[in-house]
Nucleic acid binder design. Structure first.
Lengths: 144, 144
DNA sequence: TATTGTTATACTCTATAACTATA
DNA sequence: TATAGTTATAGAGTATAACAATA
């Protein structure tokens, strides 16, 4: 037993991060999973296409720093759900440009708003400075 | 496309939390996995026994807010690795008091120091105030 | 009947290697 | 040979239901 100081799991940064991330993730999952049957990577892929426009799987991987195998499965699932179409690039037939369908665009519009609202709700407990500092710290930790 | 404002995944709190948590988790996993072949829940159970002394699986679950099935599997794995022993409680034979072995205690001592050092390293990029604020925010988010 | 702990099962997420088809 | 994307597989994490033993 170490009662000589106060270091415990609740003060261990990786543990705190894991708890907070899990809570936040579970909270937002409600939107993309319960409403659209999506998994996390599918929501991220949908987000990129909705936010930045049509692009190839490779483009998404580069932008989001997600491995191509994850993208590949997410794209296949989104295609099955009729949220996007694949269109082979004529000058390099290995690639396919991914376009959101009308349904995909609608799901994005909905989830984009939901994400903003969810983020605002999470940040509501903090002052503007506190919240900004929090996000800066997290970005720095993620970049390690 | 939504170019009318600057909300993107890099600013979405659940995403930032997931990235930071994953990075931190992967960093510390090196210690408990590579050095002792432990999984995350095993390390947490070991921590509780080392930090607060012998207790039952139920006690750990209550303290750490971890489900009994996770505890059960972690305890079984730690017993196989000879890091703890189970001793049936005579007045209620459903329960077993869990005691760290010498090896278990040594692993805890090592990992406890490693955790403190790892935490200090992660926090090194922040001022004392910033770091404290970060941990307060994370605890609040986890408690949602 | 309720509680402690175990087992079974399934789903999510991650990581890597091996493969295809194209270039 | 290299690149875009797919498939297979395994490991890690989570969640829940059903069960045995004991109270």
């Amino acid at each position: 037993m170490h009662n000589d100081d106060s270091f415990d799991l609740q003060g261990f940064l990786p543990y705190l991060l894991a708890q907070a991330a899990e809570t936040a993730s579970a909270g937002f999952q409600r939107h993309y999973k319960d409403r659209y049957g999506m998994l996390r990577t599918e929501w991220r892929v949908l987000f990129h296409l909705g936010r930045y426009g049509p692009m190839t799987a490779k483009d998404i991987g580069a932008r989001a720093r997600v491995h191509k195998t994850k993208i590949s499965r997410a794209v296949a699932a989104l295609e099955t759900k009729r949220f996007l179409t694949r269109n082979v690039v004529t000058r390099d037939r290995r690639q396919a440009k991914l376009d959101l369908t009308k349904n995909g665009q609608a799901a994005f519009d909905d989830l984009y708003k939901a994400a903003q609202a969810f983020d605002a709700q999470l940040m509501a407990g903090f002052s503007r400075q506190e919240g900004a500092a929090l996000k800066r710290c997290l970005a720095a930790l993620a970049a390690q």
